[in-house]
């Protein structure tokens, strides 16, 4: 069983590989999800990679990461020990195909005991292969979920999904049927930012614009599934935002883009949740 207390998680992607712990006292972090590691190293998408509007941030990072072999080496060398000593750490894994998802699971099994949980990214909208596209073929995705479960039998498995490609309730039904423990809802959703000169950037939308959409997804999933662990994600900037998700049945709430506005936002959110944390 995964216990996240306080119920606030640093979201994958925005949080990088722990850099925000420079700013946040560890007692305010329930868990820290690292940036997605893929089977092969990825240099990410060409610039520009980020733009923002009044209510949204759009990113097109493209899962830039050093790949699983380098990650394994770094973890074994102790490069992340400073993080493991301070907070619960959730790994995030991804790949470009079923085969890569399975291979990365096998490689990750060498270090899985160091992590509280592993979140598999089935929803990145910024890569041509893998990410969101992996769930297009439902049978293949089901097989992928089953085989990962077999490869990591004792790991707390979380599937990070978006709201595209499949109705979220249907996705969670598959995830649960294959024996997974939790879901992170929702990833960014596809968007396009156009500037005054009609130049545009396509990518994944995050920020306040995501909150009503993500709230609905949490509502639907909790309505149908009482016992799946839910990390809610989407437009959390304040303790009030977090409370809305928790009131709908989320077990924890992820903070992502809000860190761009204030690296100390997590401390403020957790202080605003103090009554609930005490009660729990």
């Amino acid at each position: 069983m995964l216990v996240i207390n306080p119920p606030i998680v640093i979201a994958s992607g925005v949080g990088g590989f722990g850099e925000y712990m420079h700013f946040i006292p560890p007692e305010y972090v329930g868990a820290y999800t690292l940036k997605t590691i893929t089977y092969k190293p990825k240099s990410g998408n060409p610039p520009p990679r980020m733009r923002a509007g009044e209510f949204y941030i759009l990113n097109s990072i493209g899962l830039e990461n050093p790949g699983i072999e380098r990650f394994l080496k770094d973890v074994k060398k102790g490069e992340f020990n400073h993080l493991f000593e301070k907070v619960k750490v959730i790994a995030s894994l991804g790949g470009e195909s079923k085969d890569e998802y399975l291979k990365i699971s096998e490689r990750f099994s060498e270090i899985s005991e160091k992590f509280e949980a592993v979140e598999f990214n089935f929803s990145c909208p910024n890569v041509e292969k893998g990410g969101l596209s992996i769930i297009e073929n439902k049978q293949e995705w089901r097989d992928t979920l089953r085989l990962i479960r077999e490869t990591l039998p004792n790991t707390f498995l979380i599937a990070k999904i978006g709201m595209e490609g499949i109705f979220v309730e249907k996705a969670v039904e598959l995830i649960k049927t294959e024996g997974w423990d939790g879901v992170t809802l929702i990833n960014t959703i596809r968007g396009l930012h156009m500037d005054a000169g009609r130049n545009y950037v396509v990518g994944g939308l995050s920020g306040p614009i995501l909150k009503p959409i993500a709230l609905r997804m949490i509502y639907e999933v909790r309505k149908h599934f009482e016992d799946i662990f839910i990390i809610a994600s989407g437009g959390v900037y304040t303790a009030e935002d977090a409370k809305e998700y928790l009131d709908l049945g989320a077990d924890a709430v992820a903070v992502g883009s809000a860190l761009f506005k204030d690296p100390n936002v997590v401390e403020k959110i957790v202080k605003g949740l103090s009554d609930r944390i005490t009660r729990e």
């Binding site: 990088g16 850099e19 925000y20 060409p46 690296p263």
Partner: peptide, 17 residues
């Protein structure tokens, strides 16, 4: 100059080729 999210190396948004 490049559009920046975090400024601390976490988000990888300010990439240049």
């Amino acid at each position: 100059e490049e559009y920046m999210g975090c400024g601390i190396g976490a988000c990888k948004s300010c990439a240049i080729q």
